[in-house]
Amino acid sequence: MVDPATARRLRHCLLFLGLAAAILFARLLPLSTVPPRFPGPDLILCLALVWVMRRPDQVPALVIAMVFLVDDILAMRPPGLWALIVLLGTEFLRGREATLRDLPFAVEWSMAGALILTMMLANWFVLAVFMVPQIGLGPTVLHALATGLAYPLVLAATLAVLRLRGPARGEPDTRGGWR
């Protein structure tokens, strides 16, 4: 018999993988032949940040790295760079779980927005240093802004539809500690 906490963790991990696969599939669909004037948000990044801020024990780092590596390959970006940057960003949040748990939403949103901007600028800078052809700094900042503005919408959707709430005080985590 499987422990209920382990089953819940596995179920949420598979749910994260399914949602990421659905977003990747929707991104690949040719919905318009005209290039977009304004870059859209990176919904997978928002989903990963929401999940790591709310329930960091339910999405392991390896799963996040694999999802973003597949995203790199499908988006024809340099494989592994964006995955590594996102992994470092999510592990930064995971290490600060105790301090982020009881923050008001405005502080959480500004923390996520600052992290999104930092990650996207780090990616742009590394690509610029190695002279990889890429979009300019302006569209990169607009993409970070769109992703930061989409964060509350993804959070509201995960709270309303998936009921992904943060752990309560005194609830045991999957590693045997207390929150």
Results as ranks from 00 to 15, higher is better:
P4G: 00
P4V: 01
A5C: 12
T6N: 03
R8G: 03
R8L: 15
R11T: 04
R11W: 02
L14A: 13
L14W: 08
F16Q: 01
L17V: 11
L17E: 01
L19W: 13
A20T: 12
A22R: 03
L24E: 14
A26D: 10
L31H: 04
L31V: 15
V34Y: 07
V34T: 14
P35D: 00
P39V: 07
G40M: 05
P41C: 01
I44N: 08
L45K: 10
L47K: 12
W51L: 00
W51K: 02
P56M: 12
Q58R: 02
Q58G: 00
V59W: 01
P60R: 00
A61P: 04
L62D: 00
L62S: 01
I64H: 01
V67L: 01
V67G: 04
F68I: 03
L69Y: 06
D71S: 07
I73C: 12
I73R: 01
L74K: 07
A75I: 09
R77A: 15
W82C: 06
A83Q: 09
L84I: 05
T90D: 03
E91D: 08
F92I: 14
R94Y: 01
E97Q: 05
A98V: 15
L100S: 14
R101Q: 11
R101E: 10
D102E: 13
L103P: 09
P104D: 08
W109R: 02
S110Y: 05
A112E: 06
L117S: 05
M120H: 11
L121V: 15
A122L: 15
V126N: 03
A128N: 09
V129C: 09
F130K: 07
V132S: 04
Q134N: 09
L137V: 15
A144D: 04
G148I: 10
P152L: 06
V154G: 03
V154I: 14
L155W: 08
A156Q: 13
A157H: 04
A157R: 03
A160V: 11
L162F: 14
R163G: 04
L164A: 11
G166V: 06
P167C: 06
D173H: 11
R175D: 13
R175W: 12
G176L: 08
W178Y: 07
W178Q: 13
